[in-house]
Amino acid sequence: MKIESDHSSASDEQLVAAAKKGEMAAFEELVARHRDKIYARAFSMMRNEEEAVDLCQEAWVKSWQRLVQFQGESSFGTWITRIVINLCLDQLRKRKRQRTESIEEMSEESGGVERQMPVVTVNPTERLERGELRKRIDAALNQLSHEHRTVMILHEFEEMEYKEIAKTMGCSIGTVMSRLFYARRKMAALLANLKTEELK
């Protein structure tokens, strides 16, 4: 099969091999295949459309420049996703300003409100249609701090283990566990309590 003439039916591995030789059309096909997933990850982390698009673009440019370093130990999709995650983390660190910590943030590491929160006994999303659930999740994610949101995204969407998340975020496994627990409990409460007015 000639990759030059038929990119759409080529595998990612074939496209990567062609792109490494400088074939831009093969790289364009890789961008087209993975662009939505990369954007979704950036948007989940940043919660800002414009910023997410810019970071995606930067991730794709970097991946082109570093393509020779990609040895195929993971899939191309995983590799480019990790690039965008790292760019998002850098951006979030830059963005973070010195600010007074809220009571909830202070309690996150030292024994906080999530331990006292009553357990949500009914499944809050059971009777919701997909669109409504999506709105609620969006609103709930917006209310989490970026540290809590990122841990949850890396665990739930990127399927990283605690150890890997700790390495990516530069914190201890204990902190990862604590943040993940807080984020899940907060999400459960928000999904159950968010009122329709708050979502409009």
Binding site: E28, V31, A32, R35, D36, K37, I38, Y39, A40, R41, F43, S44, E49, V53, C56, Q57, V119, V120, T121, N123, P124, T125, R130, L133, R134, I137, M152, E156, F157, R184, R185, M187, A188, L191
Partner: peptide
Amino acid sequence: LAELQNTNAALVGFEAEIKLPETREFFW
């Protein structure tokens, strides 16, 4: 445990619905 499982279940497939708001040609 049930609460934690419900939260996980709610998030399944969430990112799959998010699409890049630019055309293939423009983005490329």
